[in-house]
């Protein structure tokens, strides 16, 4: 997993010019109480498709090693044995590689779908799944607009699997394993707002290299994973038609109406019952 020359210069160019050093941006020491969530910025301009992130992810989560490599024309998918994949696309700018995993939405559909709070948005930003709570209903899978949560169909004790942004490492003050090992610096970990600033900076410093768009900025109401690319996102497998507002909002209207129905209906029903009582007596007399 070496970086080729092209990539080396890109890294020096992009990260050097924007003064980012290393794999994370932190203006000040990490503060766990800070409400601003963490995220990851993926820069497809820097990614060489080497799959180091895939190997690292498999290793630290005790999952099988990847058996296939990114290939143009093939859309590899995450599944219950791999939480992230890199795909290659043929574009007007040549081959572009993209890493996919859970987007760690700001307002995750999966979390609002989960009736046991097994899916949980941590204050640090990662969306995690908690084994002891989940009842395996798979409503999170129905709801996730990015089709991320996967289910172990062939296990009597199945789990929901998805990327958790290495939440336990974050709690220990480390950064996600894939970010740490990426040899191309295509992944950057940090506060979401800092990442957006950084992404904008790259776009404006190198308008020839990037399209002026950050995927995840407001897709599905904004996501923790942010993407930069040298071609329009629909060319590299992204669903750009996704709504820009939060998904949980879609069922809020219904949920808000519930308390009203609970107050109004019984009153109304009782009222009608009282009003029609006389019919009842009348009918009863006719019946006799």
């Amino acid at each position: 997993m070496k970086i080729d020359r092209r990539n080396f210069f890109r890294v020096v160019g992009v990260t050097g010019a924007t003064m980012t050093l290393g794999k994370e941006i932190f203006a000040e020491p990490k503060n766990a109480n800070e409400p601003e969530p963490y995220g990851i910025l993926f820069d497809s301009f820097l990614c060489g498709g080497c799959q180091t992130c895939e190997y690292t992810c498999a290793e630290i989560h005790n999952l099988p090693e990847p058996v296939d490599a990114p290939e143009i024309g093939v859309t590899r998918k995450i599944n219950e044995t791999r939480r992230t994949v890199v795909n290659a696309y043929e574009t007007s700018e040549g081959e572009v590689d993209v890493k996919r995993q859970c987007m760690h939405c700001n307002e995750p559909a999966c979390v609002s779908a989960c009736l046991t709070q097994a899916m949980f948005k941590t204050k640090e930003g990662p969306v995690i799944w908690r084994e002891d709570k989940c009842m395996g209903c798979r409503y999170c899978m129905i709801s996730c607009p990015f089709d991320i949560p996967k289910f172990e169909y062939n296990s009597p004790n199945p789990k929901i699997t998805k990327c958790d942004m290495c939440y336990d490492r974050i709690q220990e003050g480390k950064i996600p394993a894939c970010v740490e090992t990426c040899p191309a610096e295509a992944l950057l970990f940090g506060k979401r707002s800092d990442l957006i600033k950084e992404a904008n900076k790259r776009v404006h410093e190198f308008p020839d290299w990037y399209v002026d768009d950050i995927y995840g900025d407001n897709e599905a109401g904004g996501t923790g994973l942010l993407y930069l690319a040298q071609v329009p996102f629909e060319d590299i497998g992204f669903n750009t038609g996704i709504q820009k507002s939060s998904f949980p909002e879609l069922s809020k209207g219904f949920l808000y109406s519930v308390p009203f129905v609970f107050v109004l209906w019984p009153t109304l029903l009782l009222g009608i019952h009282e009003a029609t009582k006389n019919n009842h007596i009348k009918n009863a007399e006719e019946d006799e």
């Binding site: 779908a113 046991t116 709070q117 009842m135 395996g136 209903c137 949980p248």
Partner: peptide, 28 residues
């Protein structure tokens, strides 16, 4: 039958795992 982890089915009914923002919670 369709629940993958039916032993946790009591979670939304008793205990401290109320996913109140879930329509499925309401339906259950």
């Amino acid at each position: 039958l369709d629940l993958g982890r039916p032993w946790n089915v009591v979670n939304p009914i008793i205990g401290n795992s109320f996913g109140t923002s879930s329509v499925l919670f309401l339906v259950a």
